[in-house]
Structure formats: C-alpha cells, structure tokens
Design a binder for these strands. Structure first.
Length: 373
RNA sequence: GUGCCUAUGGUGUAACGGUUAACACAGCGGUUUGUGGUACCGCUAAUGAGAGUUCGAUUCUCUCUAGGCACC
C-alpha cells in the first residue's frame, strides 16, 4: 500500500509510493483543493494539463450540494467531475473549526447548519463514512474535532478523546462499507500544541490502525515555529511505514520544513485562493536551488497582478510555464482581466499557482533523491 | 431673453448655523494555511468662484459661473 523508496541522508525526508485504486502516488505530494467538486474555475481538461497526482474534495460541502442522490447517480465524485486522478475527501472535521459558529458538538457527532439554506444536519462518524463511500474517494478521512491549537488543555483533551472515539467508529463503519479495503482510511492526530496530548492521540490511533496518519489542528492560528515544534516530535513518532499527511498546509516554506521532518502529503487553499485574489507564485532566478529556510525558501517570489504597475507590463505571465495560456498572455492583459473581473483571470492565475506548487513538489522529490533536502 | 431649480472627493449620495463633513462604488496597497470567485483590513480623495450676515457659513443672503426644467 505504501512503500518507501528512499530516505534522505540530510533530513527525515523520504520518497515513497502510495497505492490507491485510481493510481499510484509519488510522495511527497500536494493535493489541489476541489472542495465542492471543482478546482475553482478549472475544467477537467485544465486539470489534466496540470497533471496533479491527486485532488481533494469535502464531505460536508458535497453532501449539502449536490447531495448524495446526485453523486450516487453519477457513480461517485470522480465520475461526476470527469476526473481521472485519485481523490482524497476531508471528513468535515475542519468545518468543526471553520464553521464553529454554526455547529453543535455532540458526543455522537456534530450537528452542522447548512451554509446554503440554514437547515441542520447531523454528521456522525458512521454517516461521514457512508457519505465518503458514496463519493467513492480513494483516501477517506475520519471525522475529527479540529480545535484552535491555542485552546486550553481541557478543551484539547476533550477534542482529542472525541476524535479517537469517532476514529474507532469510522474504522468499524468503513469495514462494513468497504470490506476489501478498496479505499484507504486515515486517522487524524489532534492535541494542539501539547506534546503529551499529541503523543497520546497518536498512540490511540495507531492502536486502532489506519492506512495513513494525518496531523490535524495545525496552521490554525499558531506561529510557524510552534507548528514546526509539533512536527519535530510528532512526525518521527508516527509509524514509519505509513504515509503522513499534514492537513491544510501550507506556504511553500511550510511544506519544505514539514518534508524535512518526514511528512509525505499536503493540501492547502493558498495557491488557489490567493490566485483568485491576484497573487501569483513565480520562480526566481535561483529556483530550484537547494531550498533554504530563508523567506520564500530563497527560490520564489509572489506578485500581486492587480497592482497598478502591471497595467503596463507586457512581459509574459510565466515564461517558464508548460501551459500555453501562461506563455502567450502577458501580465498587462491578466491585470486587465482582474480589473474587469472576468472569470478568465481566475483561471489563468489558478493554473499558474497550481503549476508552481506541483513543480515545487517535483523538485522536492528530486532534492530528496539527491540527498539535497 | 424671462422665471424656477440644482451645484459636496473620480462617480452616486448623506449631513449640519458649532468637534476631525458621513456612506457606497471607483482608485491605491495589504491579508488569506483540511476554500472566501461574492471575504476581510488599511490608505488616498470633496463643500463651483467671489462677497455679505454671524463669535462661527458647506448650511442663510447677494453676485458671478455652469447645468437642468418651463415659458417666450
């Protein structure tokens, strides 16, 4: 299921292959986000041109819209999207955190209010697994309780205990729904910034046994240093022969620091969300030199294409791109597209940033192979 | 030509004889970590011109200028 092919001599970084029913994934990898069943503004053709290894969808959002009936009729999320890549679905655990104002935490699950029509829906561990079964995602996540990493220990402990209890239920339900273990199930480590709680959470999950382990509840308000400190001890304590997934992270420098600490999988809204707000990730002249811990790893820069100075910049959006659009359109034009709020602006910027992230991951893998990371 | 009405940032509107003239959009810049395209946070920017009344006028009066409407 997961095989490590190379361990860096320079750090805890490793190369591996994760097998899923829809394809094999070279780790470390990054998952572009398609929460609602679309990488915002991109068609399946655009996605194929980018060639991600895997994309990410969301249980809560897809359950509300289009709903299970439609997904079932379509034959699963990938068929619905005409997507040929593996899919990981998040459980809705993050919505416990991000939608904290419109949810109620119960001992048997979470009651969420729909962001569409205000109706209430109970998400139990069992139900979340049923939904993911219909979505037929290659990698499924247990329902967890993601809390603010700076919460007090009592709250963290409660979140952790619920997470563990629910993880057990998720595993049991998954066995019923998918006895041949066609799709993978990952547990999620919680515990905030508390070492003792983190390690307890991990060992409880390992005892239950999962196909992979995720680190949740990070990048939710703490500093980078605090996050790295957690990774320092939790990553090395995780089973070596299972993939490690740092949920929701991050900026390129965060990803590099996590890879050095032995993390294999990432997802983040940054490249896509920031694209829609006009920020483009671009290689600088040192790319892909050995990634340093300097700001922007010393190898990339960002620009805000909406800035007035680009109104007159007729240089190409991205001369290094493999994508025709980014090599043929210039910055002044993209600036204009943002000013007139044309959807093409979002698509071009999104293509640029995802391409950057995927290329970054390729170079990270190359660097590990050469013991340079 | 006569009468009436109007004049506030780039645009559209508030306000009041009395603190620093408010709001929206536009403009300029920033934020974003298991999604925020519709989000969030800053910044810039105005009382048409002149005179009078008044302790104090963007507000009241007059003249001018510009625009609108009606009549000839």
């Amino acid at each position: 299921m997961f095989k490590i092919s190379k361990e860096s001599k320079k750090s805890e970084a490793r190369l591996g292959v994760l097998k899923t029913k829809s394809g094999n994934l070279k780790t470390p990898f990054f998952m572009p986000i398609a929460t609602r069943g679309v990488i915002k503004s991109l068609s399946y053709q655009d996605i194929e041109n980018l060639g991600p290894q895997i994309i990410l969808g969301n249980t809560y959002h897809l359950y509300l819209k289009p709903g299970l009936k439609i997904i079932k009729k379509a034959g699963g999320l990938s068929k619905f999207m005409n997507n040929k890549f593996p899919v990981l679905t998040d459980s809705g655990g993050f919505q416990v955190f991000s939608l904290s104002k419109i949810r109620k935490l119960l001992t048997n699950g979470v009651r969420f209010q729909s962001t569409y029509d205000g109706s209430w829906h109970l998400f139990t561990p069992e139900k979340v697994m049923k939904i993911q079964s219909v979505l037929d995602s290659d990698i499924q996540m247990v329902l967890d309780v993601c809390s603010d990493s700076r919460s007090n220990n009592r709250k963290l402990l409660k979140a952790l205990e619920l997470t563990t209890k629910w993880a057990q239920k998720c595993k049991r339900e998954k066995k019923k729904l998918d006895p041949k273990n066609k799709n993978l199930l990952f547990g999620i480590v919680q515990g905030g910034l508390n070492k003792e709680l983190r390690l307890k959470s991990l060992s409880d999950l390992v005892e239950i046994g999962f196909d992979g382990y995720a680190i949740g509840g990070l990048a939710v308000g703490e500093t980078n240093q605090e996050m790295y400190k957690v990774l320092d001890y939790i990553s090395s304590a995780m089973p070596k022969d299972k993939p490690r997934y740092l949920m929701g992270v991050g900026y390129p420098e965060n990803i590099i620091e996590a890879v050095k600490r032995g993390v294999d999988m990432f997802d983040c809204v940054i490249p896509t969300r920031e694209a829609r707000h006009g920020r483009l990730y671009l290689k600088n002249k040192f790319y892909p030199a050995p990634f340093s811990s300097k700001k922007r790893c010393g190898v990339y820069k960002t620009i805000n294409i909406i800035n007035a100075k680009f109104a007159n910049d007729f240089s190409l959006i991205n001369k290094d791109s493999k994508l025709e659009e980014l090599k043929k359109y210039n910055k002044a034009y993209l600036h204009h597209l943002f000013k007139v709020q044309d959807p093409l602006a979002l698509k071009l910027a999104t293509l640029n940033n995802i391409e950057f992230y995927l290329d970054l991951m390729r170079n990270i893998r190359k660097a590990i192979a050469g013991n340079n990371l």
